[in-house]
Design a protein around this nucleic acid. Structure first.
Lengths: 218, 218, 218, 218
DNA sequence: AATGAATGAGGGTTCATTCAT
DNA sequence: AATGAATGAACCCTCATTCAT
């Protein structure tokens, strides 16, 4: 299960540098608009090293996905199995966890959520779909538990709920520049603003989901 | 497909064909991965026509944005000025309107929401930002009205609410393939499935937003 | 002998406009770097008119040569046949005549003297060679007369002498910008400077040629 | 051909091959009419190598100018500082030197003297102007010396004199084909004819300049 | 008689990749 | 193990020209 480790120990320092440069550049410009030359330069390595290490540009992206995909299973799996916390507490932790994960790895999530290339690379599609399925399943399980314990009403479409959470996060992060103006936060540093948004998002999403899960049937 | 075109801005039939092919191809593959040759072929025209009509690949994308944006202003503006409907009814219409608009023009929204190229094309950025600002403003106005009339609580972050709506829509549409499996709807035609999702989304989003806007303060 | 007339009466106003724009543009940028679109635009006509009127870009250049080549035969021919003037006077008139002709038609002479394209267009080569031969012949005849009348020594290479005259003129005109600085004449208008150079050139060339033709044998 | 190369400026064999092919082709057809594909083929290299080595077509021309210019400074500078030779002898050497230099590098001089493109490439303009200025200055210095030593009259326009020399050379070389016929030298090889012209030009130009510089004031 | 629309060919350049070392 | 050199393919765009009207 090497591919699930956040950091593959087989990668040398240079290889990691390439992967990080890849992530950043593709997140910024897209896969097709990022040339291997640009990536190599950003990583401070020779152009030929990319083919040499990863085989091809496509396989480089593949390696990035293997490298990045899911550092979270452990956390969430533990959350599900926890018997002390009540469903509301679990929901809050879930939301917090997703907000942090997405903001901390925004570059990668951008690639995963909007890069058309990944649909045409089978190995990546496989990984991505498996991850989505797993995440979807865990959320469903958590909500099922809340519903069976009568904490949550069962009028919400759980499948859509996950998209509400992820979609909100993506949309907000994608429009961070714009929101910075809206919130009149131009004076904040990137980090300060990021932290502010992080908190706002946690509150907002927990509030939204809680409301949706507990609202009286109309 | 033509019924989705807001209006013809003095474009000839061939030019429209190019714009539609552009939209479809870029939505599918991204701007950088869509060559003008591919676009020309998809539109059934000679490659040189694209430069001839639009000047360059970049200006072609620009023309697409001018062509697509601003189809909705009228509807929503009328909604805001309506004095008969109550805020809940207005909210429902708003949600319905956005769901339909996004699903009907999904290809374009995909481009607008995920194409890195558009941030580097100033004319497009300008158009897009103006549109976002307008949309944001209208939603805020609607919610303000609901709050001032005591229909809505005022604990919701309106700026984030818009992203919840748009983000949910984008996320769902982006993962339509996956949801088709989840909903065990493989037997439905594209159109049937689209209509089903359309209704589910309307219900889900209205429910979510209503819950968020009316939930008791915790 | 229509083609020898400085202005072909068969050319309409528009055709002449095209020819003049052609001359100016090709003199400035060269044949290959001047697109028919640019020429058409400079002439204020439709692009297709050039093919329509002249057949092709190549034939347009051909037409320009026919249009321009030699308005001087008459003058010089008369000069040669003149029996009143002595060879020195004739030489001075010859020089004056060439200086004026070249400066007045510099754009065309630039094309004729440096455009590689004309060597590959047979019709033009033919015209140009015939003209050169004629000019060479006339100069030789004039000098022969001066030598046989013992005004000139006969130690000068007449074939090279013509190149000295034409080469000096071309070189000076080609480097007019540079000479304007050398002569500290930046304050002069183009016309004033042109006239100054015209006079300087007449004096210089007559002086040079006279000296060469009369110098004692060393 | 290689013996004409002033010196290798850290260029590889392949790069030199490209430069020489560039020179020859542009001298023959002009800059705009010489495609990089043609140049690459003439140099026996892949098309992409030109961008790879020189960056662009424009920079290739730039490189050619850097490569070619400044081969003569040393010789002439030494001539000026020579205290043994009298001004006439110096003049003869100067003429000889320019004749040889231009004939040996005729392709390059053609480009420099007639290529419209070079005026629009600032780096080249700079180099060319500096060279012209230097040459002009050296000739002036030589003539000044002759005048101050009373070898030369001072009635000649030195600025124009340089153009007489260079212009004659250019004009003769440009019309070599034509002169071959005039001189009835079709039976000579290119080299034989070249050598003949070289000698004729040396004699002619020295004779012209000497006559001009020594003629009694009229 | 005159022209906007349209096109195949070729322009310079960049691409991901491979090769020789 | 690592890389500078090299390449064929494809990129976007402009070209001179033709065609239908």
């Amino acid at each position: 299960m090497k591919e699930n480790l956040p950091q593959d120990l087989h990668y040398s320092e240079k290889q990691v540098a390439i992967l990080l440069a890849t992530e950043q550049l593709i997140a910024e410009k897209g896969y097709s608009a990022s040339s291997v030359r640009d990536i190599a330069q950003a990583a401070g390595v020779n152009v030929a090293m990319i083919s040499y290490y990863f085989g091809s540009k496509e396989k480089l992206l593949e390696a990035l996905f293997v490298y990045r995909i899911d550092s979270s299973r452990v956390v969430l799996q533990a959350l599900l199995e926890n018997t002390v916390l009540n469903p509301f507490e679990k929901l809050e932790i879930l939301v917090t966890s997703y907000v942090d994960k997405l903001i901390n790895n925004f570059a990668f999530y951008q690639i995963m959520n909007r890069e058309p290339a990944i649909k045409e690379i089978k190995n990546i599609s496989k990984i991505v779909n498996a991850t989505k399925q797993r995440n979807q399943g865990m959320i469903r399980q958590l909500i099922d538990e809340g519903q069976s314990k009568n904490f949550f009403k069962n009028t919400v479409d759980v499948s859509l709920l996950m998209h509400t959470m992820m979609g909100t996060l993506m949309s907000v992060c994608n429009n961070a520049d714009y929101l910075k103006i809206i919130y009149q936060s131009e004076h904040l540093s990137e980090e300060e603003f990021g932290n502010m948004m992080r908190e706002r998002l946690k509150v907002h999403l927990f509030q939204m989901m809680k409301a949706a899960l507990t609202q009286p049937i109309t």
